[in-house]
Computed example of a mutant assay.
Amino acid sequence: MQLRWSRMMPQLALAPAVAVTFVAFIGAIGWTAWLSLTRSRRVPEYEIDWSQWTRQYERLFNDAGWAISLHNLVILGIGSALAIVFGFILAAMIDREWRGESFFRTVFLYPLAVSLIVTGAAWRWIFNPQLGLQNFLHGLGFTSVSFNWLASPETAMYAIILASIWQSSGFYMALMLSGLKSINTEIWSAARLDGVSFWRLYLEIIIPMMKFTFITCAILLSLGVIKAYDVIVAMTNGGPGNSTWVPAYFTINALSAKSNIGYASAAAITMLVITALIFLPLVLITTWQQRRANGGSR
């Protein structure tokens, strides 16, 4: 009896967490999905008109603002992927240079300690033509240089991408550095003895061995891009116009500015579907690669 009770204790300890997860997470998703099928506006309505149950979604996909949000999501995702590239380069530089490693690791990780709101505010100041980088360069005599990116719909999104890369590169550097540290030192010695060039060593040996690290970074990057909101609000608040809207900003704007719960719920459920379409394939690839690696090692 005592042995059976000891086996049940972990399940009993996890029961409150499972209950909270089921109610707060799965329940919230179900509630949001239900509201997205109703005519809810300022106040939730729970009656569904089954003859027009896709009304909110049809309106959503005919909305020019949502199309802009999806377009910016793709741009932000592609641009932010450079953070993984820079993170790997920084990790490789630190990994091969032992002296001062702790100092440089701290310097590159420092932006991670800053919230996205503070990051956005800092970069908004940097792109301010009267106070920031443009004013500094004009003072040095480079009067033809223009860094007023946030004022133009064509360049505002790229300014946000630059701020996002600066803020997250240190995090990916830390992940890449841990991956590089896990590689057997004999591989480096054998490559050096065989005369393998620097580029071939990394492209044909090191990077393939770190595929799980790269997939992990890709998963974390995709989740961060889809829920991007803070840095948008801090830098542009969606402007100029709606040129820097992303799905998360569009959803919050539909809920707060337009006071349309049903419409915001439809946007939120669509975001969930987008997350699943990006996240699940990466998880399945990781699982398949791990099983393949474990099968090959037996």
Rank of each mutant, 00 (worst) to 15 (best):
M1T: 01
Q2F: 03
L3A: 11
R4M: 12
R4C: 09
S6Q: 14
P10H: 07
P16D: 06
P16G: 06
P16A: 08
P16L: 06
V23R: 01
I26V: 13
G27I: 00
G27S: 10
G30V: 01
W31E: 11
W34S: 11
L35E: 08
L37A: 14
S40V: 02
R42D: 13
P44K: 09
E47A: 15
D49F: 06
W53I: 05
T54E: 14
R55S: 14
R55T: 02
R59Y: 07
D63C: 06
A64S: 13
S69G: 08
I78S: 13
I78K: 11
S80Q: 09
A81S: 15
V85C: 11
G87E: 04
F88C: 10
A91V: 00
M93L: 15
D95K: 05
R99F: 07
R105V: 00
F108E: 13
Y110E: 12
I117P: 08
I117T: 15
T119C: 14
W125D: 12
W125K: 09
W125I: 08
I126Q: 10
L131W: 05
G141N: 13
F142T: 03
T143R: 14
S144V: 02
F147Q: 11
L150Q: 05
P153D: 07
I161V: 14
A163N: 06
S164E: 10
Q167S: 13
F171M: 08
Y172N: 08
L175Y: 01
M176L: 10
S178F: 02
S182Q: 06
E186W: 02
I187M: 13
S189W: 00
A191K: 02
G195I: 02
V196C: 12
S197R: 07
S197W: 02
W199H: 12
L203D: 09
M209R: 11
M210P: 03
M210N: 09
I215T: 07
T216D: 15
C217T: 04
I219N: 13
L223C: 06
L223T: 01
V225Y: 07
D230R: 01
V233C: 06
N242I: 03
N242L: 08
W245M: 12
W245T: 04
P247Y: 04
A248G: 08
N253T: 02
N253A: 12
A254W: 00
S259T: 00
N260E: 06
G262N: 02
S265Y: 02
L272H: 05
T275W: 07
F279D: 08
T287H: 12
Q289K: 07
A293M: 12
G295S: 10
G296K: 12
